[in-house]
């Protein structure tokens, strides 16, 4: 564990160095521009360029993974929101639910995202352990559906564009994982799957290969969850798109995400668990709804 903490701390320091070097370079180029009397603003094509190793493409992939157009199918899942509304009507409150949902996802899944980013070689093991720790049918289905979609995106779209200098061993891990997943025939209902493809560990591993930092990965993972909740809230007619954007932009969401990431940063995967037990009841009882617009 100490080793992991060290590596994450040195990761933070490395990120900081890259950031500072970028600023220095930026300031130098501005000074140069000033003395040359040319335009001060950077050329538009270079907006995302910086001088850290692999940094340009990592920004690129950060934006891709954070994009709501990433075809994961997240819009089909409400992570228990729909069931929560049905169980608590008319006293339901979206902000209250979002807080519970953030805490719950962070305590159950975020340690697996972080662990897979820190060491993608353990992907198969992480996937299996997370599969054993998911206590409700609906939640498992949602996690596996999005995980498989992400693996397909990697396979068909991202892998051919992976940044230069990427570790071949890490790519090999994903290849092996895909083979393992395909070899487990879905028609045979086995009690113990060899691989399930849950979203959390795959997201961590792919973000690592695409050279995103650990902090970025955790933030994007949690933010995507908030975005999926808000998109579900809009379609469940709780509020409109402007209000959703307002919530997404709010300080509460920013601080809420930072807070849970800080809380789970050093959590070992063996100590991950449910911090909001009633969430398992809501998500599990989603199947009991008379009418549903979401898959979870």
């Amino acid at each position: 564990m100490n080793h992991k903490v060290d590596s994450s701390e040195s990761q933070i320091l490395e990120d900081e160095i890259v950031e500072l070097e970028r600023k220095l370079q930026d300031a130098k180029s501005r000074l140069k521009a000033r003395s040359n009397g040319t335009a001060i603003s950077a050329p538009p094509a270079k907006v995302l360029q910086s001088n850290g190793p692999l940094a340009p493409s990592s920004h690129h992939f950060l934006l891709l993974l954070a994009d709501s157009a990433l075809p994961l199918g997240s819009f089909a899942f409400s992570s228990g929101l729909e069931s929560y509304l049905a169980h608590t009507r008319p006293a339901s409150s979206f902000p209250a639910f979002m807080k519970l949902s953030l805490s719950s996802i962070a305590s159950t899944t975020l340690p697996f995202v972080l662990a897979a980013h820190r060491n993608p070689a353990y992907l198969i093991e992480l996937d299996d352990t997370l599969d054993a720790a998911m206590m409700c049918t609906v939640g498992r289905r949602a996690s596996v559906a999005q995980g498989r979609a992400l693996l397909s995106i990697w396979d068909r779209s991202l892998s051919s564009a992976s940044p230069p200098g990427v570790s071949l061993a890490d790519i090999q891990v994903l290849k092996e994982f895909t083979i393992l997943l395909r070899s487990a025939s879905p028609t045979v209902s086995s009690d113990l799957p060899t691989a399930s493809a849950h979203l959390g560990p795959l997201f961590g591993a792919i973000a690592h290969i695409l050279d995103m930092s650990l902090g970025q990965t955790a933030y994007v993972f949690m933010l995507s969850h908030v975005k999926a909740l808000l998109s579900a809230a809009v379609r469940a007619s709780i509020f409109g798109p402007y209000h959703a954007q307002k919530v997404l932009a709010s300080v509460e969401v920013q601080e809420g995400i930072q807070e849970v990431i800080k809380r789970e940063w050093d959590t070992k995967i063996d100590d991950a668990g449910q911090s909001v037990p009633v969430m398992d009841l809501w998500v599990g009882r989603h199947e009991m709804l008379y009418s549903r617009i979401f898959n979870s």
């Binding site: 998911m134 206590m135 409700c136 009690d191 009633v278 009841l281 599990g284």
Partner: peptide, 17 residues
């Protein structure tokens, strides 16, 4: 009372509150 039951890798898990 709220409850849900799930089959998890050969075990049945019932959660209730």
């Amino acid at each position: 009372l709220l409850w849900s039951a799930a089959k998890v890798r050969g075990c049945i898990v019932v959660k209730f509150g």
